[in-house]
């Protein structure tokens, strides 16, 4: 009877130089995909910069608890966009917007202008109409339109907001202070039902000092319709799909080439599931280190929270597809009729 230890040993002993090469190629593909994503974010930042330089304001609504930025202007790189663009917080009147107050669900309303910090309204649990961080900001004398500088006051604001968040039972930051050059921008997270995007947009539009063709369509349509969001999210996701398919295709071909070897293990009384595990284990042994290396390079290279997210996507996408491909290929090869397999393969 094969033991799990002997199976693990076989996985390790089957690794050879070609696996290192494959891992390097895999890491390069994943890194390229991640860099494309990062570059896409950067392009979005550039476009946003241009927009903000013209005195524009950008508004987005995103759901917390999902993929940050998924419904936001910045795509998965929303944090980078915000950091470069600067943010003011503009919330709607909670009584006129349908808020989802389900536990654990939060939405953010984010508006950005160049430089200024403006907190107008918003809502968050547990009290309708309450603005997370508003109390702390009031106590510190942070008023709408006030510009925050770098230094002690910034740290003081961050600490006060954090304390308030903890006091209210949040286990993570709902408000982030994002430093960008000499300015500090505040992002306030509030709750908003996505089904109320239209009415919420109308409410918030009342606070906007601009009436611009770029903003207006965004406010009145589904999230992601903003041209920057469209530019960022869709191509980068296609690249991820392509990278994932490349990884999956590789493993599929790899085990098809080695089908006689897999069938041989069956003749050595290794069960069909054992053969599949052998293939999957080998895929894991190559894919995970490659994904980790690619992620580390991305994190070191790009630094922002989006890079961490990219790393998760890297491992998740490549790993999942690799495992699926390895299993899907190895399973039929390791069929019962091993004599037929060994003679015909």
């Amino acid at each position: 009877m094969w033991t799990s230890r002997s199976l693990a040993g076989e996985i390790a002993r089957n690794l050879r130089g070609v696996h290192v090469a494959v891992g390097a190629v895999l890491a390069a593909i994943l890194l390229w995909s991640g860099q494309f994503e990062a570059a896409s974010v950067g392009q979005g930042v550039t476009e946003l910069d241009r927009w903000l330089d013209r005195g524009g304001m950008v508004f987005s609504v995103e759901r917390e608890g999902g993929i940050p930025g998924d419904e936001c202007i910045g795509g998965s790189g929303g944090g980078s966009v915000l950091a470069a663009g600067g943010a003011s917080v503009v919330g709607g009147d909670p009584e006129t917007v349908t808020f989802d107050r389900s536990p654990g669900v939060a939405y953010s309303v984010i508006a950005m202008t160049r430089g200024a910090v403006e907190i107008v309204g918003g809502s968050g649990p547990p009290t309708p109409g309450w603005i997370v961080g508003q109390t702390a900001l009031d106590e510190l004398g942070v008023t709408p339109g006030m510009e925050l500088g770098s230094g002690a006051d910034t740290a003081e604001v961050a600490a006060a907001i954090g304390a308030e968040e903890r006091q209210l039972g949040y286990d993570r930051d709902l408000i982030r202070l994002v430093p960008a050059g000499n300015q500090v921008f505040v992002i306030c997270w509030v709750e908003l039902d996505p089904s109320a995007f239209g009415s919420g947009a109308e409410v918030i539009a009342g606070f906007l000092p601009y009436d611009d063709a770029v903003i207006r369509p965004f406010l009145r349509t589904e999230p992601g319709e903003h041209p920057v969001a469209r530019y960022q999210a869709r191509p980068s996701r296609l690249v991820w799909v392509a990278a994932g398919l490349a990884v999956g295709l590789f493993w599929g071909l790899w085990y098809w080439i080695r089908r006689r070897e897999l069938a041989l293990y069956r003749s050595l009384h290794l069960s069909r599931s054992g053969v599949a595990l052998l293939a999957v284990g080998e895929a894991v042994a190559v894919t995970v280190p490659a994904a980790v290396v690619a992620s580390l390079v991305l994190v070191v290279g790009h630094g922002a929270t989006s890079a961490t997210l990219l790393g998760v996507w890297t491992i998740g996408t490549a790993g999942l597809l690799g495992l699926v491909a390895a299993t899907a290929t190895a399973w039929p090869i390791a069929r019962r009729n091993l004599a037929v397999a060994l003679k015909d393969l």
């Binding site: 033991t3 076989e10 070897e261 041989l264 290794l270």
Partner: peptide, 18 residues
């Protein structure tokens, strides 16, 4: 039918793992 990339000794030893 052998594990072509493995040593001859490995090809025999692997049978004992069963």
């Amino acid at each position: 039918n052998v594990l072509a990339h493995r040593r001859a000794a490995d090809n025999v030893a692997v049978a004992a793992l069963a």
